[in-house]
């Protein structure tokens, strides 16, 4: 069970949190040939309030499909950060968008601030690809799946005609990660 990695993406409905979770899980399961389980909060709260998507990745069988002891948490709103950060385990990684999350919770974990929506809006020109920028940042900072796998998974999921846009967004996220790691 030691190679079980628990990832939670949190934000508000409409930010593409669930799609990001599905893409990460497909990267792990299909392109990295590991096991992966993805689940999401489902219901009215997913449309507007705090929403979350969880991905468990493991070399071995995954029994319990929900996250309880989180290795990697992405928080794209203050509300979701407050609501979903208590399960982050000591030594874990918290990635926040500093424009949205002003108050970062304290704990024995590493915090990375990535201006996800600023990058999406200014560098790529489309805030809507923020979830893909976030995926790039998560993969760049944690190596939870390979770069090749996340690239293939993004390409197989995004609508036709938007491949280039989304690859640019992914790349921008990876670059943000490199910049932070170099610090």
């Amino acid at each position: 069970m030691s190679n079980r990695v628990e990832v939670r993406f949190s934000g508000s409905g409409g930010q593409g949190i669930i799609l990001a979770g599905v893409i990460l899980a497909e990267a792990a399961a299909i392109y990295d040939d590991k096991n992966a389980v993805q689940s999401q909060s489902y219901g009215p709260e997913a449309r507007g309030g705090a929403s979350k998507a969880e991905v468990i990745i493991s070399e071995g069988e995954i029994d319990y499909p929900k996250a309880t002891n989180i290795d990697i948490l992405l928080a794209l709103t203050q509300v979701s950060c407050d609501k979903y950060s208590s399960d982050l385990k000591p030594g874990g990684i918290l990635i926040v968008d500093p424009q949205e999350v002003k108050k970062v919770p304290k704990g024995e974990f590493t915090v990375y601030s990535v201006p996800i929506f600023q990058v999406a809006g200014e560098k790529i020109g489309r805030r809507i690809v923020g979830n893909i920028v976030a995926l790039g940042a998560v993969v760049g900072l944690t190596g939870v799946v390979s770069r090749k796998a996340i690239e293939e998974a993004v390409l197989s999921r995004v609508p036709r005609g938007t491949e280039e846009l989304n690859l640019k967004a992914l790349q921008a996220g990876l670059e943000e990660a490199e910049r932070l790691k170099a610090k």
Binding site: V22, A25, A29, I30, N35, A36, V37, Q38, S39, Q40, Y42, I62, P65, K66
Partner: peptide
């Protein structure tokens, strides 16, 4: 159950 129906797995 709802969990099994909605979760995605390899």
């Amino acid at each position: 159950d709802e969990i099994l129906a909605h979760m995605r797995e390899k």
